[in-house]
Every structure is written in structure tokens, then in C-alpha cells.
Amino acid sequence: MSDVMEFEGNKDNISTKAYLEEAVSQPEISSLASVASHHSAPGSQPLGTGLEARGVHAWFGKHHALADVNLDFPAGTVTALIGPSGCGKSTFLRTLNRMHEFIPGAAMAGEVLLDGKDIYEPGTDVTKIRLKVGMVFQKPNPFPSMTIAENVLAGLKLAQLKAVNKDDLLEECLHRAGLWNEVKDRLKAHGGSLSGGQQQRLCIARALAVKPEVLLMDEPCSALDPGSTLKIEETVRQLIESVIVVIVTHNMQQAARVSDYTGFFLSDGGPGQLIETAPTSEIFSRPKDPRTEAYVTGRFG
């Protein structure tokens, strides 16, 4: 426990030191053309080497919520994290883009490697990490004071990025989120005027606009109807050409439909642990661990 990282208990306290050291540099999205080509010809441009969790532990105050999670997220894949409530899968997800530290008393140990570099290394610019590792939340949370277009491009303003052509970026992101046809005639309408499912896809478009390498999705469909859920799943399948997707879900059919790999988390009273991880088809057909089998066959959880 010697290398536990402690965070101050302010709701927005990005580890103060890292915050102070953060350089006010303004990265630029150099060319949309590169993104476009990358999009149309998957594999023509190498993706990052991916995301790896090494021995990740998490605490909330004294409560040990997550123990020793080792998990790889290879490029071009969707990984689903399943498990009963309170097993630490959402907590794990939030350690992957340093959103974990917003919770007062939160601490973690271990390493999260993005393209081989530990994102918790002192001196790391946390805002850049969150640009590379985007997140979609359980409840759709578009900015209500902004229009649909402003919502999609909000990340550019928030992270002080410059885009060469905002209109192209807007259209591209809405296309990729599967929302373009539904909103192209009312881009100036407010984000709150959309349905729940549309709002969630708006949030996906918003996350994509800053060109993340990884997209974390925390039960993105739990507040949505089946039709919207299906649309989001289709969107996720199309995203893997350019981003690594990690999706937490309570819905095992969803995990089966959408993911290439599945990790099963479980807490037996103590901290949550990663019980088993395997290609999704194996997890659902011949799990190695009897607890996984019990869960995926619906005997508990």
C-alpha cells in the first residue's frame, strides 16, 4: 500500500500538484483529413498500442473497493465489464481516465498504461489524459445551455483545442454517433430538446469530437428504451475502427451483442475483483470459473 495515491477531497480537485504543473499548451487537431482517412480505411493508420491496467486497486476512504485488477484493452476491440452491483466495475472504469479522483477520499494503487505510459505518473497533464480517454455517462448529460452543435463541439472549447473545420467535424461526429440524420435540420436547437436516446448519442458525438483513443461507457443504455439501446450498440460496433471501447453493462445480452472481450467482476463481501476475462463468446458458452457461470446463466446477480 506504499504507492497508494491520495487525492484531496474536493469534488473537482484534480490532484493539485498535477494541476499546477499542467502546462497551458494548446494541442491542435492538426488535420481532419488524417482522421477521415483513418475512418474510411481502418488499419491504414496504426492505432495506439492500447490501454492496460496493471494491478489496479481502488479505495474510498478506508473502504477497499477494488483489488488487483489486471486487464488489457487491445486496439480495435470492445471490452464489456459485467458483474453484479457493487462489484467495482464502474469504479474500475473511472480509474482509467482519472475521473475516480473526483470522489472525496478516493485513492488508487497500481498503474494504468496508455500507449505504454502510466497516466498516474506525477507531472502528467490530467486534462490531456481525459482528452485521450473519453467517457460517456450512465445518464445522458448534454449541456442544457448549449445547442446541439455547440454540445458536439463543447470539448474543443473546454480543452482549448483548435479545429480546422468545425462544420466538417460536427457532421463527422454526428454521423459516427448515428445521430446526423435525426438532427441535421435542427443543429441550433437545444440539446435538451432531444429524446433520452438521442441525448446519449449526442454525448457520444461530443466525446468523439476531441478524437479520443479510448471511449469509456458507464452503463450508457441503462436509462434508455430498447430501440435507443440498439442504436447505441450499432454505434459502438462502428466505433471500433478508430477507438478502443470499454463498456460497463448490467445487461448480459448487451455484453454478448456488442463486445469482443468480457471481464467479469465480483465482490464476495471484500473488495471487488476481476474473476475472469476472456473472449465474449467463451465467457457466455464455457466460462472457466463456476462463479462466472452462475452469473451469466442468471443464477444470481
Partner: peptide, 14 residues
């Protein structure tokens, strides 16, 4: 809080 977190998750500074 979800709006604040949405902003931070997009790489916002404070």
C-alpha cells in the same frame, strides 16, 4: 455534478 463531470471528462481545465 454530472455536468461538471461531463466537462472534465472532455478535458476541461477548472
Amino acid at each position: 455534478l454530472d455536468r461538471i463531470q461531463a466537462a472534465y471528462a472532455l478535458g476541461a481545465t477548472r
